[in-house]
């Protein structure tokens, strides 16, 4: 009997084939095919309602899909809860609104999952958390509560919290959209740092400078479909699809 994890060992980090999803009657994702290689950095952009957030939320099972196959790190996402939980242990996610646990300190936010999911002893989890908080340059705030931090700081804590689970893939869902302009850079710099270390990541964002700098491929979505996948330099200088051109004209001006 072939071990499934062995079978997919050489496959991509994320493989999506024939993915379709509906909200009620609304066809929100249409025939998505995408293979993300290990260490690859993908930026997904597109107008609001294009399905880009829904797509990455399907990758860790926050959204259920009705058709198609999603294989993450060799594990296929099905209705099986064990498979979903298994995927979530290996996939970190950062949200637009940070979603830090407001009743816990920064340090407790970071140690919660390591202690209760990875079953690390408390001391070890705290060492790990301090290490990652150090990395996002926020270790001195470890004993504050999220409400006492600025938006940029909260988002960096959220990144550290995800990293504490030692994920092999990171999903970013518009990580800078809710931030004041002067805080965007500190968060992007943190993500760029991660990218430079070879983290596999999918990032939904409208930060085109960031896309140009870190992405291996840029995906443009509209109306639930992938319209264009391109290398960043050609995506910006020579978009192939009419709708991509229109979108870039509107946001780049």
């Amino acid at each position: 009997m072939a071990d499934t994890s062995q079978r997919f060992a050489d496959a991509g980090a994320v493989e999506i084939a024939g993915l379709n999803k509906w909200y009620g009657d609304f066809h929100v994702l249409r025939d998505i095919d995408l293979v993300v290689g290990r260490g690859e950095r993908i930026v997904i952009c597109g107008p609001s309602g294009s399905g880009k957030s829904t797509l990455i939320r399907c990758i860790n099972g926050l959204e259920e899909h009705q058709q198609g196959r999603i294989v993450v790190d060799g594990i296929e996402l099905t209705r099986d809860l064990a498979a979903i939980e298994n995927v979530r242990r290996h996939v970190g996610m950062v949200f637009q609104h940070f979603n830090l646990f407001s009743h816990l300190t920064v340090l407790e936010n970071c140690t919660l999952a390591p202690i209760h999911v990875r079953k690390l002893p408390k001391g070890e989890a705290e060492d790990l958390a301090r290490q990652y908080l150090e990395r996002v340059r926020i270790a001195d705030q470890a004993h504050k509560y999220p409400a006492q931090l600025s938006g940029g700081e909260q988002q960096r804590v959220a990144i550290a919290r995800a990293l504490c689970m030692s994920p092999s893939i990171m999903l970013f869902d518009e990580p800078t959209s809710a931030l004041d302009p002067e805080m965007v850079k500190e968060v992007l710099d943190t993500i760029i740092g991660l990218a430079e270390e070879g983290m596999t990541m999918l990032c939904v964002t409208h930060e085109m400078g960031f896309a140009r700098q870190v992405a291996n491929r840029v995906i443009f979505m509209d109306g639930g479909e992938i319209i264009e996948i391109n290398r960043p330099d050609s995506f910006f200088s020579a978009p192939r699809h009419e709708r991509t051109k229109l979108f870039l004209d509107r946001i780049l001006r």
């Binding site: 860790n60 099972g61 926050l62 939980e85 979530r88 242990r89 996939v91 970190g92 996610m93 949200f95 609104h97 940070f98 979603n99 830090l100 646990f101 407001s102 919660l112 999952a113 209760h116 999911v117 959220a158 919290r161 995800a162 689970m165």
Partner: peptide, 17 residues
């Protein structure tokens, strides 16, 4: 806010945890 349960799920926490 729904984000709280989404963040908890995304970290791999099970229902009762």
């Amino acid at each position: 806010p729904k984000g709280q349960s989404e963040a908890a799920k995304a970290l791999g926490l099970r229902f009762w945890s």
